[in-house]
Design a protein around this nucleic acid. Structure first.
Lengths: 230, 230
DNA sequence: ATACTGCTACCGAACGATCGGTCGGTGCAA
DNA sequence: TTGCACCGACCGATCGTTCGGTAGCAGTAT
């Protein structure tokens, strides 16, 4: 009833029939290329609002063919969420997130989290919208909470070291910080510049700055100017 | 399969059979008292993830009885969203939102928006999660965009008057501000103190401050310290 | 008092449609 | 000739909604 779509495309969707290269993109779907289609539709219609029929139309293959690549709808959800979580947790392992003054580590994590969110936008968006209806979703929420708590500890530590203003509760500050960061998923669109969806504004250019590093810088500046002491 | 619930309760859910008082809370459901149950379930499971069976179980009446009070599932959504929008738009009509320096009006709107969000939490939460699958949802998104744009204009005006820092784009600043405000719906719980759901922290007391005015104050302080000049 | 009427708030059963998922294939390249 | 990518037809379950009731009560005529 609505938007159709051609076959995979992926990174340069050429038929790779020249020479037999098993690791290279094929003309048919792989679990991963199908996932990217599915996640896009999940984000457009919501996971519960997306039927396998919707997915098959968007992927350009029949409903039953989807089951050739993945076990079912919930596996697509799990795979998509996993990818987001992997990216986020990797940030915490980076050296600048583990060494130095807490407020500096917090700033690094903030900046990198924004960058990962924008780089893996559809997957992180999917993660952020999970409601907890199934076991998969409960697992996702639990993992996400784990990540949030790791950051919350950084905030507390930075506050204890006197680098964050003391008139705003550390937990509340963490929540507001995440609110800012996560809201990026509501309006940022990698191409075009953002057609909107959440916070105001018409659809003309957004000040020209739209690389992930630039947005990350603006978030860090805005948030930390509000949070830092003096 | 899960949580049951008794009848209405409402504001002091007594049988009002003494004397015949047409405007007073009855022992049975009204469209509004049913709405409050429905909106709660919508927020727990997501609108698409909520079946009429879920609603009937939560309300303690049969599925078919729901149709005695409302036209159907989508009317419940529309009513819930309307209530949220009414509260938000009313803020823009308040005198301090219409008179004075732009940055002061912006600050007032921010504070009051936070307060309305917390006072009408379930309804605003419902509004914030709409995806745009049906005509009702598209209407909700359009109205919400309208509200956001009104605030965005305030931000631009305040920036033009030199009261907001110039190194962060006005549109981006608006989006980050809304991100902060709207994220409250992810963790604030009117009773108990917030069991979490989004940003970090364990479930012990959140520094004691949890009245809507206090949270609003913290948001305004954090956001505006980051946004304001000097 | 009793019987009848009309109305409100509810119910169980069932509707066609759609849900996620299964099955037995088919065409085609290696 | 094997196996991969795909298909249409179909499964039981569940979806939102409709339908024909019915118990209980207020008002009224008897």
């Amino acid at each position: 009833m609505e938007n159709f779509a051609q076959r995979p495309e992926g990174p340069a969707g050429r038929p790779a029939s020249i020479g037999r290269m098993p690791t290279v993109k094929r003309d048919t779907y792989t679990p991963d290329s199908l996932l990217s289609v599915a996640v896009r539709v999940f984000n457009e219609r919501g996971y519960d609002g997306t039927s396998m029929e919707h997915l098959s139309k968007a992927a350009g293959i029949s409903k039953s063919s989807i089951y050739h690549h993945v076990r079912g709808k919930e596996e697509l959800l799990r795979r998509g969420i996993s990818r987001a979580l992997d990216g986020l947790f990797a940030v915490l392992e980076e050296v600048p997130a583990r060494e130095g003054r807490a407020v500096e580590r917090l700033e690094h994590v903030t900046r990198r989290t924004v960058e990962v969110l924008m780089a893996e936008l559809p997957y992180v968006t999917l993660l952020l919208r999970v409601r907890g209806n199934t076991e998969t979703e409960l697992w996702a929420m639990s993992r996400r909470r784990e990540f949030d708590q790791r950051v919350a500890e950084l905030v507390k530590q930075a506050a204890a070291e006197g680098d964050l203003r003391s008139d705003v509760d550390a937990r509340l500050a963490t929540r507001l910080l995440f609110g800012m960061i996560n809201s990026i998923a509501e309006w940022y669109r990698p191409d075009r510049v953002a057609h909107n969806g959440a916070a105001g504004g018409d659809s003309s250019a957004s000040g020209g700055s739209n690389t992930s590093a630039e947005v990350a810088e603006a978030v860090v500046r805005t948030a930390f100017a509000g949070l830092r002491t003096s």
